[in-house]
Design a binder for these strands. Structure first.
Lengths: 195, 195, 195, 195
DNA sequence: GATGAATGAGCATTCATTCAT
DNA sequence: CATGAATGAATGCTCATTCAT
């Protein structure tokens, strides 16, 4: 089955929406702006998506699917932790836009959008599997979760989003930032893994 | 003297704006909604603030001032790290709303608002002073900064914002979450301080 | 084909805008009033015109186009001056609304809108062609221009705008005003043409 | 009696209002802008004037008064027409701002503001007195009036307002424009006076 | 699949004006 | 005389969305 034209249009909409949502935030990015930048009629967007929010959800689903695919492929757990971190960060840097959207939406205190936690869970589960001796006491579980989420997941997700601004603000070169971040996250998170 | 004390009106606007910006995001929270919730005429808001953005900046400045005051007062560095973390987090939990706004705005990839980094810098400087032997090599400096920002500042700021949703999503009690977070951040960040 | 023909909507907007701009002045005539009087939704006006100013410019362009068409048609220069003046004034009386807008906008001392001079130039060029022996000395040129602009163009444009008020204020009948104006402009301007 | 402070405030408001009304038009110039530019509180303006329109009327009255004063002084009719025109234009050039306001307001087709005609009448009466043999037939009267108003008053008033833009648009020096205008108005209007 | 045209509701902002002091 | 504070109504303009074609 060949991909239809309609499919390409849908993809283009998602692509442009991802960019604009990430640049300006979901609320500030208008359907009109997406339509203009994509070169697609506004009404056509509503042919492919029922409303603005459903574009966001399609973006989320895309990301979740790609993470699942990665898990299936990368089942060969890296023995080398550094290699593992690097692959992780490299993947997320490409996803920078959707990651920023995910974080911004999760931080609206009124928003009951679970997507960030959904994705975090799946990431953390991968990690759980990478680690052998997981103790079962509730305290250990809570500590493990807090460790994974707040000192692993959040720093990495925040890094890919804030990297550029961090570099600009502190006047650090790209290479140096990456090296420093890898070293920091290794020491703080991976070398202290709760096991 | 005029009808009412304008200072109180200004404070009320800031208070309500902080709540709504945090709940819905800066863009989704409208001046009309702020005016309605504050019981203050829309035009009165514009008597006190030149535009919507300047309300945000007033909020930022308030936070920066309060952090400066804290630094001046808390010069007696806690010998006990745990006490120090707890005070830090307790303070920020009260500031949860402005913290969420700060993070959301920083994560707009097009936004050149430096406020998050400004505040982080000030926090990190306090930390720098708490730690005695700071080495001067650029690599060490970069590592120290990355450690502070991405494994200290960002996790703590994210925690106060995401705490509630985290608890709800993972079904953990308030006390347990706090304990687990304290333990995790201690192990990952404070016990591994770059010195 | 869409619900209605957008061209008609656009024309209706221009028509109503011309009336209201002329009646109240550009600034006092609101888009809301235009929308209400035209029976067209406010947002529809912004579908057809990017902003309020661009409605004004569309009006100017319409007038310029109609003047160009007239020039092309009326190449047979009237041998009788009186016939010529009458045709000229008759045409402009139909354009009274846009003429009044043009004059009002030109008289804002801060406004760098050239439209009045653009149109005057084109009118004066027609006149230049009607007259045979045009001398080339700069003084003569300046005199010719001043004569055409200030004692020909401006009086005629002002006449079509102020005619009604002039009649009412001085208590003169329509026919008498026209006759008197024709006689006056003939004596003062056309009979004294700089040649 | 010394001029009070309040009097000076009132004068300053009128002065600034005249400038802004002339620059932007009556409707576009806001009380807020006047207050800011004058360095006078908005409420203070309402202490001196009942509403916006009454500022305009005060401006009109000032102009009318000054014209009356001139008539009383200048009763020695210049035997030299050229001198007379020059004095007339020189006076009006200083009044450029109020003249532009007067013309703009008169050109709103809905406006029943008579001020322009009031002032024109007074000017034309002076002229009537300068000229000896005024015939009494209605036709002659109408012609005289049309001649004075449309080929004398309107060109001169328009000249002082449009002079700068005219110069800029046609690329003519200040001196040349004045000379050309004087020559044109002399030939067209004064040399052809209806008597 | 796609689009030009249209819309009701809402946006941030400004208006002329008021009033207690 | 003067002003800081406040306001109802309006401003120009944009929003997400709809619908006939």
């Amino acid at each position: 089955m060949p991909k239809t034209d309609g499919y390409l249009t849908r993809e283009r909409i998602l692509q442009v929406a991802e960019t604009l949502f990430s640049e300006q935030g979901y609320d500030a990015a208008s359907i009109g702006a997406i339509s203009k930048l994509a070169g697609i009629n506004k009404a056509t967007i509503y042919y492919h998506f029922s409303d603005k929010r459903s574009i966001l959800h399609a973006l989320y689903e895309d990301m979740i699917m790609q993470m699942r695919e990665r898990i299936v492929k990368n089942n060969s757990s890296d023995s080398n932790i550094m290699d593992h971190i690097k692959k992780e960060v490299d993947f997320l840097r490409q996803k920078k836009d959707i990651v920023s959207i995910l974080l911004m939406e999760a931080m609206k205190t009124n928003n009951d959008d679970d997507s960030l936690f959904l994705i975090a869970s799946s990431e953390i589960n991968r990690e759980k599997n990478r680690i052998i001796n997981l103790v079962n006491s509730p305290e250990k579980k809570n500590l493990f979760l807090a460790h994974e989420f707040f000192t692993g997941f959040i720093p990495i997700f925040s890094f890919v989003v804030l990297e550029d601004k961090y570099r600009k603000y502190f006047g650090i070169s790209e290479e140096q930032v990456i090296d420093a971040f890898f070293a920091a996250i290794k020491r703080a998170h991976f070398d202290t893994h709760v096991i």
